[in-house]
Design a protein around this nucleic acid. Structure first.
Lengths: 191, 191
DNA sequence: GCTAAATTAGAATATAAATTCTATATCCGC
DNA sequence: GCGGATATAGAATTTATATTCTAATTTAGC
């Protein structure tokens, strides 16, 4: 077999997520991440081919977790009022997964993906296109009259909660009192 | 007197604003900015003491332009419906000043200020505190019953339009059809 | 207990970009 | 038209980090 690792790959990803949430992906150095994970710098390069690949993994892991839930809820929404519930995923996810929430909401996707290897880019592109598809389909169902239905849905279910939560991130947690405000705003944005 | 400069300080700031809007402040190199401004690298250092100070200036200039208008409108708002108009400043400002809008909305304040010299930090802190003061005062006037009035106002007039516009930035322009959606959402968020 | 595999460990090297330095050009008032 | 002031110009240096390299450990199976 060989020597067993101090930490798992998941632990490294968690450390990288925490550090890049705190400092932003551009300022998260490999040394910072290694320190947070309590492994030497060299060990990091046994797990991942490059800092850029690790950063991409951080974003992809966070986006996958959020996206899966989002699309599940969205697909199940049969009425506009049910769609409004989807908008509440953003503050809820952020409370449960603060670091991943900060990665997705307080930083930019491109900061994580700019130097990413091709494979990571492909996975990230797939996530984005899945989201677009989900929105398009939901718009056809929920806003059949609206020519710009998908855009409206994106603004109401992603943009509005995103902006509301951003008022508090990255330092603070979005308070629970925010949720009804988001719901009301999203509902109004849906027309 | 001495040799006259090829470009003005304002031109340099404009170039820095454009480049950092496009690449993000972390990836905007002095060489990139010098090229955009059509001056040699060395000349940049005749104008500003450091890259960090220039980046701080970029953010401060954008925030000052936006903040002044925002606070003026907010101070003049005497009813909730007038406050809703304030929320529309964000998409309008972004259309008129795309680069400055992207600086303020698609990047993070801290990315511009992290390494800033003390003087820039102080100016930036003043801008933030002016905004807080304006919001507090407006909350007292417009939402006297609401214990979290300032927070609510921040979410409705900053967070909501910010999130809505972010759906389109940095590549696209927020379409004019977005404005009524923002107005409706902001109005709803105000309760 | 020995050996090969897998990992820790961190020093050495490479790289990219900020900053500084040295020279050169232009301008204005005299 | 001369001299100090100010800017251009870009090469040289420094600095901060990513990446690579060489050893030294630890483990499982023989």
């Amino acid at each position: 077999m060989g020597r067993r690792a101090h930490i798992s790959d998941a632990d490294l990803l968690t450390a990288a997520t925490r550090i890049s949430a705190r400092l932003g992906p551009g300022r998260a150095t490999v040394a910072d991440i290694a320190r947070e994970a309590k492994v030497p710098i060299g060990s990091v390069y046994h797990r991942v081919p490059s800092r850029a690949a690790l950063m991409a993994d951080v974003w992809i892991a966070a986006a996958e977790r959020f996206g899966t839930e989002f699309l599940m809820l969205l697909a199940a929404a049969d009425k506009l009022d049910a769609a409004v519930e989807v908008a509440l995923l953003t503050p809820r996810f952020t409370r449960t997964n603060h670091a991943a929430g900060v990665v997705l909401l307080a930083h930019r996707r491109d900061e994580f993906l700019d130097d990413a290897p091709e494979e990571s880019r492909t996975r990230a592109a797939r996530l984005s296109s899945d989201l677009q598809k989900g929105l398009t389909e939901a718009a056809r169902r929920l806003l059949p009259r609206d020519k710009r239905g998908r855009e409206r849905l994106a603004v109401a279910l992603i943009g509005v909660p995103y902006g509301a939560v951003r008022v508090f991130l990255p330092q603070a947690m979005p308070p629970v009192e925010l949720d009804p405000v988001i719901a009301a705003a999203a509902r109004a944005a849906l027309g």
